Amino acid sequence: MPKLPFIQRVSDLYDQFQKHDAKQTDRLLRYRNIEPDSAQFLSMLIRIQHSKNILEIGTSTGHSTLWLAEAAQQTQGKVTTLEIEPARSQQAAMFAQELGVNQYVDFWIGDAADYLSESIEVFDLILLDAERSFYSGYWEDLKRLIKPHGGILIVDNVISHATEVKPFLEIIRHDSRFMSTTIALGAGLFMVVSQ
């Protein structure tokens, strides 16, 4: 279980991010961080799975990154987190350092499609929380990067933005190598497990 100072600070950061988002009329200027119950669920999954190699696609300002890294600290794992906007990645890195989990995170700045196409690593757990219009294009690389026989992909916002992610989820549902289900936490999580 994460220590109380960690939980309190991450909660305060989430409130700060929410206040920022409430003032933005342009969706792309919002931080759009994952909801606390979804982040805590991911932390629990990492512990249950004893995940060592974790990939996050979409760092933003690092709310989910902090939860992933805190859990990776417990499993002696590592989080690689991808963000296209340098300023957001730098903010997330600053918070990770403040909370003492920075040694468990590699911050990668650039287009996620480039990273995914070039990576040869296999990941125990992948969190996909980025621009939804690109998800279907990521699938061929994601399939290759998800650990066989029990690797997990979590896709965020599948209830709140159901129409946008529907084509992507249909692709996954028709792939017999993966089991999947929707979990009604936060904005909706789609959990995919390799068979």
Rank of each mutant, 00 (worst) to 15 (best):
K3D: 15
K3I: 12
L4W: 05
L4M: 10
P5S: 13
I7H: 07
I7K: 14
Q8H: 01
R9C: 07
V10Q: 09
L13A: 11
Y14S: 11
Q16A: 14
Q18R: 13
H20P: 01
H20G: 01
D21E: 08
A22F: 06
K23Y: 07
Q24F: 01
Q24T: 14
D26Q: 08
L28A: 13
L29I: 15
R32W: 08
E35Y: 14
E35I: 06
P36Y: 05
D37L: 03
A39T: 06
Q40A: 13
F41C: 11
I46R: 06
I48R: 09
I48N: 11
Q49P: 00
H50M: 11
H50A: 15
H50T: 12
K52I: 01
N53W: 02
L55K: 03
L55Q: 07
E56V: 05
I57H: 02
H63D: 07
S64V: 03
S64E: 11
S64M: 13
T65V: 09
L66P: 03
A69K: 00
A69L: 03
E70L: 13
A72T: 04
Q73M: 13
Q74V: 07
Q74P: 00
K78A: 06
V79R: 02
T80Y: 04
E83Q: 01
I84D: 09
E85N: 12
S89W: 09
S89N: 13
Q91P: 00
F95T: 10
E98I: 03
L99S: 07
G100S: 10
V101C: 08
V105Q: 08
G110L: 14
A112G: 02
A112S: 09
D114Q: 12
E118H: 12
V122E: 14
L127Y: 00
L128A: 11
S133M: 02
S133F: 01
S133R: 07
Y135V: 02
S136N: 03
G137M: 02
L142P: 03
R144C: 09
R144T: 11
R144F: 06
K147I: 12
P148M: 13
G150P: 02
G150L: 12
G150Y: 05
G151Q: 09
I152Q: 08
L153M: 05
L153N: 03
L153Y: 03
L153D: 07
D156C: 05
N157L: 03
V158P: 06
V158H: 05
S160H: 02
T163M: 12
E164H: 00
F168K: 10
L169A: 07
D175Y: 06
S176E: 15
F178M: 12
T182G: 07
A184S: 15
L185F: 03
G186E: 03
G186C: 02
G188F: 07
L189S: 10
F190S: 08
V193C: 10
V193W: 12
Q195A: 15
